[in-house]
């Protein structure tokens, strides 16, 4: 494979990964502080179920309506999780886990009479980072900017954390897949958990970028699926950083 070929193949994936990291490192630190690790799975599943529901209700509607359905469902999920967090803080993680499996099972029932059932279910949560198109990158960049602005200027918990998380996860899951979203959220944040906000985010971004670049490189050289490879290199990169931090 020639150098230009490799670059042509990898640059959209790199930009997609970097855009995801740009929002997920800061969000991940919040998620860890609140101890609600599985909130991104619940939100991602809400988005997938929302997309399926709008597809079934509107027939083979235009992609924009599916995206709208996905985003609305994710935002609704974020609002209800936020409301629950106020009243039932001590069982919040259980409620999040519960919402996830409820929505996942609901999605299976939703498509059980649809001829393309299995494919829809699979596709909704399995974005593949290598197949990202320039058009998707533009959307992802817009979403990332909205998310950063909300986190920066949001006044309450809802507008500063829950809603931007819903937007970020909805955009990212469909382009890079649910495993990579989870890894981008958790691993860099874990490697920087003890640092203050500013330096923690910088370290998290460095750890994330190192994992992203090495994962893409290994997947190119060894011809492995890129998403799962990056998940593993992100974990290694975070572990190395955490270890050097302690010494």
């Amino acid at each position: 494979m020639s150098m230009t070929d490799s670059l042509h193949i990898l640059w959209p994936a790199f930009i997609a990964g970097a855009l995801v990291l740009a929002t997920h490192v800061a969000l991940g630190r919040q998620v860890l502080k609140r101890g609600i690790i599985f909130i991104d799975l619940a939100v991602a599943q809400a988005a997938a179920t929302g997309a399926l529901a709008s597809q079934i209700l509107l027939g083979d509607a235009a992609a924009i309506w599916q995206q709208t359905g996905a985003l609305l469902a994710a935002l609704l999920m974020a609002v209800s999780l936020h409301a629950l967090s106020k009243r039932h803080a001590h069982i919040q993680e259980a409620l999040i886990g519960g919402s996830y499996i409820l929505l996942a099972s609901f999605a299976v029932l939703l498509v059980s009479h649809d001829p393309h059932a299995g494919e829809y279910l699979h596709q909704a949560l399995s974005g593949q980072i290598l197949w990202v198109t320039p058009e998707q990158l533009v959307w992802l960049a817009v979403a990332s900017m909205v998310v950063v602005a909300m986190m920066r200027y949001g006044k309450q918990e809802l507008s500063r954390f829950y809603l931007p998380l819903a937007i970020a996860v909805t955009g990212a899951v469909q382009t890079v897949g649910v495993y990579l979203v989870f890894a981008s959220l958790i691993f860099p944040a874990l490697a920087s958990i003890r640092l203050s906000d500013a330096s923690g985010i910088v370290r998290g971004l460095l750890v994330g970028t190192a994992g992203l670049v090495s994962g893409l490189t290994i997947s190119l050289l060894a011809d492995l699926p890129s998403g799962p490879t990056i998940v593993i290199t992100l974990a290694i990169s975070a572990a190395v950083a955490a270890r050097s931090n302690r010494q």
Partner: peptide
Amino acid sequence: QARPSLIS
């Protein structure tokens, strides 16, 4: 699954 060699 999307592998680099497929695109190449």
